[in-house]
């Protein structure tokens, strides 16, 4: 790719039409880290192309929120056939665009909650959690964390999906008292970062005692780096979930391939790739179970999740409470 780059650039200027391909192309719009070399993308592509007789192309666009914005920018003329990587905090807004069609797939999902959504199909899920070094003094609830002198790094709910997840976590666990919890949490917050990357980086540099991430984060360190020093703190109020979903674009020019892909998402081949590439729980546990190391992770006693509609509706007030409490 690198050498004929200039040629490619020149060709791109002159040839506005896509290269004519023998095989049909299925375009999947997804977030960056899904399609990156270190994400599930390459393996998923190989597995699907084995059976579909097609060319599966991923288009990466920032994170989950950027993905939705991208789709809204493109509107009905989007080339995407599938959108993969929204979460339940975004699906209500995604549904409002009217760009999605029912997925028509039924699968035995192994989510800790019941799933009834005929437009969006989960492909993986996880619990938000504070991740810390083993041996650090561990609070056992959000309230205990707020009352401790533990220093944490969180993400901004206005620019980051985990940040929004924490906002919804506090909202789901404390409802009308969410503002009070944030006020008490304010002195624990070392800083608020624009995205997960900055926050996790600061934590690994030893800046904070804990960082908002996922219960599955320690699995990465354990499995990929053989480092068992990271733990997630179990909290009594329960843990807010992130359920990542895919949807079929109504105006797809490849309806059969799109349907095949939606069915493929919950298949063994796709689901067995997820745990050690996306570092989340698969939506359908593979027959062989989860990879070794996942059994060491904490299992929250209670799963919290607002419905997409509630999540969307409560966001403005929750954001205000957050900003007011943290701006003191």
């Amino acid at each position: 790719m690198q050498k004929p780059l200039i040629l490619t650039a020149a060709a791109a200027f002159t040839l506005a039409t896509p290269a004519i391909a023998e095989t049909p192309v299925l375009t999947v719009l997804t977030y960056d880290s899904f399609t990156s070399e270190w994400g599930p993308g390459p393996a998923v592509e190989a597995a699907f192309e084995e059976t579909c007789g097609c060319d599966l192309q991923f288009v990466g666009a920032g994170d989950g929120a950027a993905l939705l914005a991208r789709l809204q920018l493109e509107g009905p003329s989007t080339e995407a056939d599938i959108v993969l990587g929204l979460d339940t905090n975004l699906t209500a807004a995604a549904r409002e665009t009217g760009l999605f069609a029912p997925h028509g797939v039924s699968a035995d999902l192994t989510l800790p909650i019941a799933w009834e959504d005929d437009e969006f199909m989960p492909f993986d899920w996880g619990y938000f959690a504070f991740v810390a070094n083993k041996g650090a003094k561990a609070p056992n609830s959000l309230r205990a964390l707020a009352d401790s002198d533990t220093k944490i790094v969180i993400q901004d709910p206005r620019s980051s999906t985990p940040g929004l997840g924490l906002l919804m976590w506090v909202q789901a666990a404390y409802g009308n008292d969410a503002g009070a919890l944030w006020a008490d949490l304010a002195d624990n917050i070392l800083t608020v970062t624009p995205g997960w990357t900055e926050a996790y980086g600061l934590f690994l540099e030893g800046e904070a005692d804990a960082v908002l991430s996922y219960t599955t984060s320690p699995a990465y360190h354990l499995i990929a780096e053989e480092d068992d020093s990271k733990v997630a703190w179990p909290f009594d109020e329960g843990h807010y979930m992130q359920v990542e979903v895919a949807g079929k674009v109504a105006g797809t020019d490849q309806p059969d391939l799109a349907n095949a892909f939606m069915a493929f998402i919950t298949s063994e081949a796709f689901q067995s790739i997820i745990p050690t590439t996306n570092w989340m729980y698969p939506a359908v546990t593979p027959a062989d179970g989860l990879p070794a190391g996942f059994e060491t992770l904490i299992t929250p006693a209670k799963a919290l999740l607002l419905s997409p509609e509630d999540a969307l509706a409560s966001r403005p007030a929750a954001l205000d409470a957050w900003r007011t409490a943290l701006s003191q």
Binding site: A65, A66, A69, S159, I189, V192, T193, W322, L326, S327
Partner: peptide
């Protein structure tokens, strides 16, 4: 500004733009 500013007090106009474009569309 946001990373070292310590919290939402350190919100800049550019962050608000980012939020409008990416989260709120």
């Amino acid at each position: 500004a946001l990373t070292l500013g310590g919290g939402p007090k350190a919100t800049t106009v550019e962050l608000a733009i980012y939020q409008s474009l990416r989260f709120d569309f």
